[in-house]
Design a protein around this nucleic acid. Sequence first.
DNA 1: ATGAACCCTTGAATGCATTCCAGAGTCAAG
DNA 2: CTTGACTCTGGAATGCATTCAAGGGTTCAT
Lengths: 160, 160
Amino acid sequence: MVHSSDPKALSSGSLAKVTGVSPDTIRHYERIGVLPGASRTESGYRRYPSSAVERVLVVQRALRIGFTLAELAEILKARDAGGAPCRRVYHLAQEKLKGITADIESLKRTERYLKKVLADWEQRTQIAGPGQKSHLLYSLSEAAMKSGAPANQLRRNRRT
Amino acid sequence: MVHSSDPKALSSGSLAKVTGVSPDTIRHYERIGVLPGASRTESGYRRYPSSAVERVLVVQRALRIGFTLAELAEILKARDAGGAPCRRVYHLAQEKLKGITADIESLKRTERYLKKVLADWEQRTQIAGPGQKSHLLYSLSEAAMKSGAPANQLRRNRRT
DNA sequence: ATGAACCCTTGAATGCATTCCAGAGTCAAG
DNA sequence: CTTGACTCTGGAATGCATTCAAGGGTTCAT
């Protein structure tokens, strides 16, 4: 054993920089279990194998798709343990797609509605001069809001 | 003053039921300032005027559009104080619309990408029999992900 | 007057990825 | 040998609407 440390090893900070996330995030990923525990230098510094770069990038991409860190941890741990969680991954991805499609529909409804409301308000504001009480908010009606979900917290906890 | 209490007065629970939210939410709205402090019975029970029903409904509708409770509190307090915050409301609503439209675009990108990925995976899974490592997650590429935001937390803190 | 069904308050938990904090050790260059 | 740049840890904060919890009153019908 001439060199016990991989020459391509990365510190948490370098890994962070290379992958475009913060060092805190890297450590967080390890806590969660989405990154396997890194080996350490004598002084306790993390040393990541170069393969960790791809891993972090994969996680980032999966997050965009809507995967959850918990799900990724489960999947990646299974993979690391020699399993082939492809079925699970595929199934989850399908669910994510469904969710995204539903969100798009929901947002579109809200968008249409909001456009109407704004157009209506424009009229009203012109009629009643500036500084007049025109009760904009109170003119919001239930119409066309059927299932327009809160524009904020869409697609949060989707238990699968 | 024969009857000091409005016959149409509602308890927090009734208001909640009528408007379809939980009593906790009603109290929360009051804390936040989105509902004006209700008058109380001798024993300390809240008595809401019937106008509170519309108020809660307005808040619910505004929330769907993407307004924030804090924004609504500001606006509604101004209104209660005799002001006409229409300009602010209109401006905020415009911002919300922009945000929603942007979110839709972002989600569409992610949707397109995810569809491709799933189609690709389908192929791959058929080739490699079940139980085979096909590295689905690792096949996620950066392509077409340009600004596909995290499918989850879209449109959170949009400072306006 | 006993219990079911309300209501009150303050404060903390939820979800979820990320960031920030404090207190403390490490490393390389000047 | 000091300084600036990193790194370590565990826990708390962020945002935001909603819900829950604990400890206690109130009301009305049995």
